[in-house]
Nucleic acid binder design. Structure first.
Lengths: 199, 199, 199, 199
DNA sequence: TATGAATGAGAGTTCATTCAT
DNA sequence: AATGAATGAACTCTCATTCAT
């Protein structure tokens, strides 16, 4: 019935942010289904009622907290890449890209898995975050264009590159396979991307 | 605390299998947290009590059903690849690999995501399934060796190849990005793998 | 998801009846909205879970308990009227009808008001209970026919008669107006009905 | 504990009226328990705080809004009846009475039912509104006396007449029984009242 | 051994009321 | 005087698990 509040005053905005932060932390730590709204409220230092005046339901907290997080780290990465010297050769650039990505996303592994989970349960969220990723891919493609990468099918190549880099992150942070040498793997991925983009 | 039974009689084994099958179907369809034990029992045609005499808890049903499923489809894929004619060129072989994988795993998207979720919550399960995957990678590597692929770092290359192929499956079955052309993507992945293994 | 249980065994049927009885008592005593499911369960001596395995929700308990109650007292009244001597004159018959009704329904005042409340909130329940009342009116009409009442528009006349009698009950049990003489009122109602049915 | 304010200034009085009006509209539309104070405040264009400075609680808003409404429509009806030509015959007068009542009260069905509910919960309110009705009955009786109705037990007859007319309203606005012909019913009620008052 | 009724803690959510600003 | 954000107890309902039969 009652719509959720859109806070404009400083204190309200801060409170909303606290809830988002609390939600994000707990979802990452314990998973979406094992985190309950009472905990989020307590962790955020607000009442359960307040929580429901800022967000329609638990799900919206998840979406918003995650959206913010992805926004923040993808912005950070894009900024890093944008500020690299122009004359850097492609191989070094890709190396920086890989390292930057892994550093920034390393702490988000739980969050990324949780996101996948909720995405599977809900088509709307699927679209929401797939759009977000599209934007990210486009931004990466644009950066590559400024570096005189002119090959065809660039969007698809960026997509494949991102998958490869993310698999490195996964390997590093959660799902480690015995017998895999991470440095070799990283080098493989780098060569792979380099070849694709040099075509 | 009654231990779970290890059934030896035929009827018991059948019952156990029914539960595993029911669990797998429902977990895939609705997700782990949205499937309840009563449903599993009903779908399997057993009582809830029986369910708890075969499995310690809901989680064990998940693990076992998933393990069986992965075993079954990875065996099927390996068998397909093994039975391909010896003289097939590498490019065609990779094409078959990709197609076979996507066909076999297409229906498992929900299951694979659910698996990720449980893996994040539990280190032991993480190891369990990472071992399973290692075995799979090794088998793929062995098949490649019989096809006279002799490049270095084969294990890492197989791993990267599998990641790429699985990202294709994901793109096809759940997380579709606007603007991505699937055929181009598939070709990219194929060329990528081909180049890696030809080094 | 899970359907409500339809109990066939004796103990289950008894438990279901206990819930219905508990619901009815509490709804009458405290009103629908001031009675909570935990109370009903406790009063009935069952767990909240059991309550929800027998009934879809609180509302269904209300409907069923009320339906049973109305059924029981209307049956009792009809039986009373049916067993009156054949040769009784119409005036005396109406007198018995009025007295019987008031006696039987006197204790149901709270319940009847609660019923009205829920009926207003829900069209389906409205129909359910209006059908029940229709049946009751028809039964009364049939009894009158056996007493050689042959006037036209009998159904409408029965309806009006029932309204009048129920207003007497209300006057007696809950909403007493100063200055109204109940005996005179009762006599008025009686004469009114007598005239209608004698046309 | 701050007492509720008795407003004397024009703006305050207007605000109070807005709340009463908002409460009445919403209680009628959605029922007492499904209307919340935030909605009333919003609909009235005041803050929740203001609402609580004019009224002790939600219940008082209900009582006051209802009292005003009943006052207003009963006054309107009495005025209509008073302004009918003197020489009108009784039958026509009763017809006008019935039509006037139904028109005026048709929209109040939800409100009337809600009133019953609160009445059951509270004896003081019971008396309050029974007094209000008594006044109304007396006024009707007085009007009839000016039309040379001189029969005995007039008060009781008026009461019975009012019940009958209200049952028509109910039949029309909420609780429709299949098989009942409304026009026939209306005629029955009219004849009934006519006979009573002609004695 | 097998059943499925029973449990009851715990989930998400609402809302009458208060009170700092 | 007026606001509306904040409170938190209370609500309905779910479900993994147990255990009497």
């Amino acid at each position: 019935m009652a719509k959720t509040r859109v806070p404009t005053q400083k204190r309200s905005i801060e409170k909303r942010e606290k809830i988002v932060k609390a939600g994000f932390d707990l979802f990452c730590e314990k998973g979406y289904y094992k985190t309950n709204t009472a905990e989020i409220a307590k962790y955020a230092g607000v009442s359960t009622g307040a929580l429901y005046s800022y967000f329609e339901d638990k799900r919206q907290i998840f979406i918003e907290s995650f959206h913010q997080h992805l926004d923040a780290i993808s912005s950070a990465l894009l900024q890093q890449l944008n500020s690299l010297p122009e004359q850097l050769d492609l191989s070094t650039f890709i190396g920086k890209w890989i390292e930057g990505y892994i550093d920034l996303y390393a702490k988000s592994n739980h969050a990324l898995v949780q996101l996948r989970l909720v995405i599977v349960d809900d088509e709307e969220i699927n679209h929401h975050f797939s759009d977000l990723e599209n934007t990210y891919f486009s931004n990466i493609a644009d950066i590559l264009k400024t570096r005189e990468i002119t090959c065809g099918d660039l969007f698809e190549k960026v997509y494949v590159s991102c998958i490869l880099i993310d698999s490195l992150r996964q390997e590093k942070t959660s799902f480690s396979h015995n017998g895999l040498n991470f440095e070799i793997l990283q080098e493989q991925v780098k060569q792979n991307i380099l070849k694709m983009l040099s075509d």
